[in-house]
Design a protein around this nucleic acid. Structure first.
Length: 516
DNA sequence: GAAGTCACG
DNA sequence: ACGTACGTGACTTCA
């Protein structure tokens, strides 16, 4: 019997608490509408108004306005709740009839049936599983960070000659640019305030000692507030684990997002950041964490869909793509590519995925704008297939009004024919980026569904816990290490057939940092 | 609630 | 000539 609902993942998780396992087939109208138009809002009230011309009973009329006086559903007479809940079910059922048509006419029925609907149970299971963290360790880290922050704060106030609120960009801007007059023409934000962003401050690092201290204080303060102090508060009393929520209908490209807390932006790039990653641990001593991430998935996707022979060749030969790119654009032997050349090539490769501009590239490198332009021209001469592909994407978007991923997921581009040049070029960058980012999302979702199925089929103790766009994190029982490794590696690498191989890196560890 | 900033892919 | 990298979520300040 098919279960129709709006945001079924929520219902599934509630019912799970009462030991009720909701079995497929499922039909989720929130997910359906996300595929029909990912850019729009997908809440039931809005959809009901725009598709059914009906304004539902508001939740606020039942339990009151948001705030501390808001009642709970428990406090409401059963008759009222019944009325509200049945309307909810009815609306979702009515929307189904409409979205059935929409899914078909938009060509997204298959991705709905084969990817997004199966993902609901995969994500429900990941969320209810949760991940273990070492709160004691984080509390120790808090003390360590606190000491360092105090030292830095004293230095900063000494150097600025007065105390102020370091968290206030406004006050900081006044100190740096009015009082200390670090530059004659400070960069402003769009509201006219002095910009004190990391990007601006880094460029001033040699102008005054205070800058280094501020940058260090900023990054440490961020880590302390967002992770070290917050994560322990997110641990569930019932399970002793952190249960993030994976949003399936938020991004415009098909990626997931994660919140409450966000576990897709746990630090890794800095030394201090890595200390935080160490706090993510297996559930007990019989388990280890295992992380498996796709290597260069977005570049492999663009190589394959653009059919560019040079880029395909590099991936088939399993060469370092950034080194190969540097070798081509600087016209030197791969062995003679310098660190700087490889670094620049890497930036261009990323730029390609985002829809490069000479300006953007010059911002990200130490190249001038004209050097950047030469670099890009040179790039396209060496990867001519990419240039052709990119213009064909833009043409396609202009004609059809949307672009699509390898699995047919669409993104509509309202501004692709706009008279406003800025809006138009923004849409053009989306026309290039969305199919790449979105295809990578399709691929990892397919892998997740198959891995989840296989784990269930074999009744494994090991569990999939997290997805971070191109990475999956597992809690693996010691007795299943080899088996799980094989299932995950094979499934991820064979999720789809491209013109280039898909490769993954996979490691075990006693924490998330070690598994990376 | 918007703006600014910064953590991640 | 003009403003620009793609996609997110969380925290703090300030009007």
């Amino acid at each position: 019997m098919i279960k129709v609902g709006h945001n079924l993942k929520f219902d599934i998780k509630v019912l799970y608490k009462y030991d009720i396992d909701v079995v497929e087939p499922l039909y989720d109208t929130m997910v359906a509408h996300y595929l029909i138009n990912p850019d729009m809002r997908h809440n039931l009230d809005t959809l009901s108004e725009s598709y059914l011309n009906y304004t539902p009973i508001s939740i606020e009329s039942l339990i009151g306005k948001k705030g501390k006086n808001q009642k709970s559903m428990r406090d409401i007479p059963i008759e009222e709740v019944t009325n509200y809940a049945s309307e909810d079910a009815d609306l979702s059922f009515q929307l189904k009839q409409i979205f059935d048509e929409g899914l078909k006419s938009n060509g997204v029925k298959q991705i709905f049936d084969d990817i997004e609907i199966p993902m609901i149970k995969v994500l429900s299971d990941m969320e209810k599983e949760g991940i273990n963290i070492d709160s004691k360790y984080l509390n120790k880290l808090d003390i360590e960070f606190e000491k360092e922050l105090n030292t830095l704060k004293k230095e900063i106030f000494n150097q600025s000659g007065e105390e102020f609120n370091l968290n206030s960009p406004k006050q900081l801007g006044n100190i740096l640019f009015d009082k200390l007059k670090l530059v004659s023409k400070p960069k402003k934000t769009k509201t006219g305030q002095y910009s004190t962003s990391e990007e601006v401050l880094s460029n001033l690092a040699n102008n005054h000692e205070i800058i280094r201290s501020i940058l260090e204080w900023r990054s440490l303060d961020k880590l302390q507030n967002t992770y070290v102090r917050s994560l322990p508060n997110e641990v569930s009393d019932k399970t002793n684990k952190i249960h993030t929520r994976f949003n399936q209908t938020v991004t415009t490209t098909g990626r997931l997002s994660s919140n409450n807390p966000n576990l897709q932006n746990i630090p890794i790039r800095t030394k201090n950041g890595q200390k935080i990653r160490k706090a993510f641990i297996p559930r007990n001593s019989k388990f280890e964490l295992m992380a498996a991430d796709y290597s260069q998935i977005e570049l492999r996707v663009i190589a394959s869909i653009s059919k560019d022979e040079n880029m395909i060749d590099a991936f088939i030969k399993n060469q370092d793509i950034h080194t190969m790119t540097a070798s081509k654009i600087y016209n030197v032997d791969p062995d003679e590519v310098t660190r700087e050349q490889r670094g620049n090539a890497k930036t261009v490769n990323f730029g390609i995925i985002y829809g490069v501009s000479a300006f953007g590239l010059s911002q990200q490198t130490n190249l001038t704008r004209s050097e950047s332009k030469l670099m890009i021209d040179n790039y396209f001469e060496n990867y001519p297939g990419l240039k052709t592909y990119m213009s064909s994407q833009i043409d396609y978007a202009r004609n059809k009004g949307y672009v699509e991923t390898i699995m047919g997921r669409r993104r509509y581009l309202q501004n692709i024919n706009s008279q406003n040049g800025m809006l138009r070029s923004g849409a053009e960058r989306n026309a290039i980026n969305a199919p790449i980012q979105g295809s990578a999302a399709d691929i990892i979702k397919i892998a997740m569904i198959r891995i989840h199925n296989e784990f269930q089929k074999q009744s494994l103790k090991s569990k999939m816990l997290l997805q971070v766009h191109d990475e999956l994190v597992f809690d693996v029982h010691n007795s299943e290490k080899e088996l799980v490794k094989k299932i995950v590696k094979t499934t991820m690498e064979s999720a789809v057939k491209l013109d280039v191989p898909l490769r993954i890196d996979l490691e075990f560890g006693k924490n998330w940092l070690e598994a990376h």
